[in-house]
Amino acid sequence: MNIHYLQHVPFETPASIEQWAIHNQHSLWATRFYANDSLPEIDTLDWVVVMGGPMNIYEDDKYPWLTAEKRFIEQAINQGKTVIGICLGSQLIADVLGSKVYQGEYKEIGWFPIQLTQAAKDSTIFGSLPQQLDVFHWHGDTFDLPAGATRLAYSEACQNQAFLYDKKVLALQFHLESTKDSVRQIIGNCLDELVEGKYIQAAEQMLSRDDDFEQINSVMRHVLDSLVQQNSHDNAVGSA
Rank of each mutant, 00 (worst) to 15 (best):
A162W: 06
L224W: 08
W111Q: 12
D95G: 05
W20V: 09
P10L: 03
E105A: 14
G53T: 12
I93Y: 06
G53W: 11
Q118C: 00
N56I: 11
A15H: 04
A203F: 02
E196G: 02
T31D: 10
K62L: 11
P54G: 08
I200C: 01
D144I: 00
N2I: 13
I187D: 11
Q131Y: 00
K121A: 12
K70P: 05
D141L: 07
L66H: 07
P40Q: 13
W65C: 11
F126T: 07
D212G: 02
Y154V: 06
I17W: 06
G140C: 08
Q115C: 06
V195Y: 03
V219K: 00
D166I: 00
I93S: 00
W111F: 13
E193K: 04
F136C: 13
G238C: 08
Y102C: 04
S178H: 05
Y165V: 03
S239D: 08
L39F: 15
N2D: 15
G238Q: 14
N56S: 15
F213Y: 14
D181G: 03
K168H: 15
Y34C: 02
E156D: 14
G53Y: 11
G80F: 06
S27R: 15
I42Y: 10
K81W: 10
K167E: 15
D141V: 07
E108K: 01
L66W: 08
E156M: 09
H222M: 05
R32T: 04
I200W: 03
S128G: 04
L191W: 01
A162Q: 14
Q161S: 14
L227G: 05
Y34P: 01
F33E: 01
K198S: 14
A162C: 09
I114A: 08
A162H: 13
V183H: 10
A240K: 09
N160G: 04
V49W: 02
V83F: 04
V50M: 07
W138M: 10
E204S: 15
W111Y: 10
F11L: 10
S218W: 03
Q173L: 15
H4S: 09
F163T: 07
E196F: 06
K167L: 04
M1G: 15
I125D: 03
F72T: 10
A15S: 14
L164F: 07
T142V: 03
L28Q: 13
I86W: 04
D95F: 07
T150P: 01
A68W: 00
G85N: 06
A94T: 07
A120K: 03
I77C: 00
H139V: 14
A30R: 13
I125C: 02
P10Y: 07
P40V: 11
Q229W: 04
Q25V: 11
S182Q: 05
F112I: 03
P113C: 12
